[in-house]
Structures are given as structure tokens and as C-alpha cells.
């Protein structure tokens, strides 16, 4: 459904995206992960036909994103990374404008989405909070029931409750066979929904992995507090999880091996467990370390 072929764009400052190629089949939720400034938005701008490729091409549903942008837009629901709405109108007027420009007649889906996000569209957009604007943009991206979603940082600005609403919505759309590409700088935000993840850094693709493979590669620090110091010492004696002990508390580093880890601590009395996840940068490092040469 989405296809990049050697997509390249160099900006005046030397940054950009370089020789990006991947395919996203129909029905897949694809996470596009990278630190800020890595080229995520630049890729998405090519998919939306805002930028002309310097080399290579991007296509959605078989239509070239630059030359046949209107055909692409017909099938796509787009959520911009930076939300700037036309000024001086209410949320409802904005949704009416978007529906009018798309020729969408059906208002049922729009109303259902408004209900779901608990969004009151009848206030001027400039009076809306950041989270509310995010919801409004989300409704605009979803209301015409497109086949493909292109979402630039969809979960930033949403509170935890709304993040859950969003995750449910994405999973629902996935079950209806929709294709999704969403970018993020945080692995946690997209791991619940994505099937595959591409990691981009400094404009280059450094990995495309199945989510489960990535999750196995991701190391987690389990901070376990035991009933007494003796129990902690016994648990820390097992060297296989790189333990660090501070009194009754031991940090274990676990990578994929959850059963073995649980076996290792099961015999002691555990008072508390908290988990720290690695951040993106560490996943990169692991990726390089694990694969020898990631490129």
C-alpha cells in the first residue's frame, strides 16, 4: 500500500533523507521511529506530496505521491506533526471545510469520532487546548474512513486516557484491514499497535524489524525489592542477569528472557517490582551490538 523506492532529498544544510526504501503491505501497522530531526517528517511530507523527491519515488496505493497527489489524498487520512489550523473558525466549521473539500457526505462517522474523543467542536479553534486540537485533527484524519492512515507523531499531546482511546482506535482500524504508518520518537508509544518498526537516524534507515524481534532485543531493567537482605543476596548470586544490589533492592537487566528471569527470582519473597525501559538511543546501541554491523 505504501512504497518508498530509493527516496532521497538533500536540504541546503546537508541534512535530509537518503535512499530510503521500504514497503508496507495492506493491513499492516508500521511504526516509523527515530529521534527528532532524523527525517521522519520529511519522509511523510514526501508521502503527502508536499515535497518533490530529489531521487527515487514514493507511492501510496500505486499512485505516485508527487505527480498524483490528489489521488493519493483520496485514500489517505493525514495527521500533521505540527498542528496549525486555519484561523478564525470553530472546530465544526473546520471539519465541515475538510469534509467539503473531500466531498464526504456521511456525518455518522464524524459524530461517532467526536463522541469517542469527547470533543465539543462548537468552540473557536484558538480557544482549544493543545490536546483538544490534537483530537480535532485526529477526527479530521479519520472521518472519511480512508484506506491508509499517515500519522505524524499522533500520540504527542494526548493524556494517558486519550492515548488508550487512540490505541483502541488504531487496533480497530487494523482489524478492518486498514494500513497505518505512524511516526514517533518513543518506542513505548507505538509498540502496542505496530506490527513492524523502521528505525531511521540521520536520514538513513538503520533497521526494519518485526515488533516482537525488537521487543526481544529491548533490554529492560527490573528493579526488584526483596523481603530481606539475605533474599536479595541469594537472588543477586545468579550472575546471568547482570545484577546490581543496593541493600534489599536488586537491578536485573533482562533481554527477552523473561521466563528464565522469573524462575530466578521466584523462590524469594518479592515485595516490589518496577520496570525501567530502555530509551530509543539504547535500542540503537543494542541493535548495532547485536547485529555486528547494523547497516
Amino acid at each position: 500500500m505504501i512504497e518508498l523506492n530509493g527516496l532521497t532529498k538533500t536540504f541546503a544544510n546537508g541534512r535530509g533523507i537518503f535512499d530510503l526504501s521500504f514497503r508496507i503491505p495492506e493491513g499492516e501497522v508500521f511504526g516509523y521511529l527515530g529521534p527528532n530531526g532524523a527525517g521522519k517528517s520529511t519522509t511523510i511530507r514526501h508521502l503527502m506530496g508536499f515535497l518533490k523527491p530529489e531521487k527515487g519515488s514514493a507511492a501510496v496505493c500505486g499512485h505516485d505521491c508527487w505527480r498524483q497527489a490528489p489521488l493519493v489524498h483520496q485514500r489517505v487520512g493525514y495527521l500533521p506533526g505540527e498542528l496549525a489550523f486555519p484561523e478564525g473558525i470553530t472546530g465544526r466549521a473546520f471539519l465541515r471545510l475538510m469534509a467539503g473539500m473531500r466531498g464526504t457526505r456521511d456525518e455518522k462517522r464524524r459524530d461517532a469520532l467526536l463522541e469517542r474523543f469527547q470533543l465539543n467542536p462548537d468552540i473557536p479553534i484558538r480557544k482549544m487546548s493543545k490536546g483538544t486540537k490534537q483530537k480535532l485533527a485526529m477526527v479530521a484524519a479519520f472521518m472519511h474512513d480512508p484506506a491508509v492512515y499517515i500519522l505524524d507523531e499522533p500520540t504527542s499531546g494526548l493524556d494517558p486516557v486519550m492515548q488508550k482511546v487512540f490505541v483502541d482506535l488504531i487496533l480497530e482500524e487494523k482489524n478492518r484491514g486498514k494500513t497505518v504508518l505512524m511516526s514517533s520518537h518513543s518506542f513505548r508509544e507505538i509498540e502496542k499497535t505496530c506490527d513492524r518498526i523502521a528505525i531511521i537516524k540521520q536520514g538513513r534507515l538503520i533497521a526494519i524489524e518485526d515488533i516482537h524481534t525488537l521487543q526481544r532485543k529491548q533490554r529492560k531493567i527490573f528493579e526488584v525489592t526483596f523481603g530481606d537482605e539475605e533474599a536479595a543476596k541469594r537472588a543477586a548470586a545468579n550472575e546471568s542477569f547482570d545484577p546490581t544490589r543496593r541493600g534489599r533492592t536488586v537491578d536485573f537487566v533482562v533481554q527477552g528472557d523473561y521466563n528464565a528471569f522469573l524462575d530466578a527470582i521466584r523462590r524469594e519473597s518479592v515485595v516490589n517490582v518496577s520496570v525501567h525501559e530502555q530509551d530509543l538511543e539504547d535500542i540503537f546501541m543494542d541493535y548495532y551490538a547485536g547485529e555486528g554491523d547494523g547497516r
Binding site: A69, L71, E82, P86
Partner: peptide, 13 residues
């Protein structure tokens, strides 16, 4: 401002 992104995301040339 960036509001052109919404306008151009519609299937209009």
C-alpha cells in the same frame, strides 16, 4: 503557519 497542510491533504490539486 502550516495550516496549508490540512488544506492540501484533501484530494484537491
Amino acid at each position: 503557519r502550516g495550516s496549508m497542510a490540512f488544506i492540501l491533504a484533501a484530494p484537491q490539486s
